[in-house]
């Protein structure tokens, strides 16, 4: 921006800001690298670096924490959550983007609330209900709990994409005799592929990273990677610190792959949250 007013001037404030950014990154790198180095290290007490390097901790973590099973569960849960939340959320997003009807603001607010509330707040009553009906402790309970923030999230990310599609295209298709089904499958779905991809990937990233809801509803066989990681860490002392580190690295590697894929399809600002203003009447 400042380019338009001439070159960026190195003001004292500017230097302070850059120093703060660099300081933040140096420490962040320290945090991340310390886990990475430790996961490959042999013994590491009171020295700058471990005494030697090994990959044995990855094998240990893989066996001890039954990581294969955990990763399969994580992928299964995430895939189910993505498919279900898109199926439920996308039609609702369509209605909210296209139509005005009495009570729209109330409906919109109800869809927003699960995102605005801390997961623990509704997670505990939700887990209680899921236990009551026998869902919690199984994969189905974990999927149901994770759908709660995911469906509203799909609605919020899809709405702007749907608003961009010209309604006249739909009208034209209808004039030519297309039914509602045909309009959806042949006209809207192909045009909305970018939006569907974006929201699916965002839900995937959020579900893999979602700790609280999975933690509250998972049983021993339905833990996802984050939850397994938390348990392994809070039980530290029993197991070697380094295999916990190795597991954390596996988790981050998985998230990074997802992130790189996600960034090909979406704007980084959408990764965090996209709470749009309520649509103007």
């Amino acid at each position: 921006m400042s380019r338009k007013f001439g070159p960026v001037r190195a003001t004292p404030l500017g230097w302070v800001i850059w120093a703060v950014v660099v300081f933040f990154f140096v420490n962040l790198a320290g945090v991340v690298l310390s886990v990475l180095v430790s996961s490959f290290g042999k013994k590491w007490f009171d020295t700058w670096f471990p005494s030697g390097f090994t990959t044995q901790w990855y094998g240990d973590a893989w066996r001890e924490f039954t990581l294969f099973h955990v990763i399969v569960v994580t992928l299964l849960v995430s895939a189910l959550v993505v498919v279900l939340s898109v199926l439920v959320g996308a039609p609702a997003a369509y209605v909210l983007a296209r139509k005005n009807f009495p009570g729209k603001r109330l409906v919109y607010l109800t869809f927003l609330l699960p995102i605005l509330m801390p997961p623990i707040t509704y997670g505990i009553p939700l887990a209680t209900v899921l236990y009551k009906f026998g869902f919690a402790g199984h994969l189905s309970g974990v999927v149901l709990a994770n759908l709660v923030p995911s469906v509203p999230f799909v609605i919020l990310t899809m709405t702007p994409f749907i608003e961009q599609v010209d309604p006249r295209i739909e009208d034209a298709a209808r004039m030519l005799g297309a039914g509602t089904r045909a309009v959806f499958l042949k006209i809207l779905a192909p045009l909305l592929v970018p939006g569907l991809l974006a929201s699916a990937i965002l839900v995937l990233v959020r579900t893999v990273g979602m700790f609280e809801l999975t933690f509250l509803t998972a049983g021993p066989d339905s833990q996802t990677l984050v939850v397994a990681l938390y348990y392994s860490m809070s039980a530290a002392g029993i197991r070697a610190q380094q295999s916990v580190d190795a597991m954390a690295v596996i988790y981050t590697a998985m998230m990074l792959v997802l992130l790189v894929v996600a960034l090909r399809f979406v704007n980084p600002t959408q990764l965090v949250a996209r709470v749009k203003e309520e649509p103007s009447e």
Partner: peptide
């Protein structure tokens, strides 16, 4: 911006582990 997004993927658990180490 990509570098700035990375910490979001770390998750609370790896961050915790890293902070304890670092």
């Amino acid at each position: 911006t990509t570098i700035l997004v990375v910490p979001i993927t770390l998750g609370t658990v790896l961050t915790a582990q890293g902070l304890l180490n670092y």
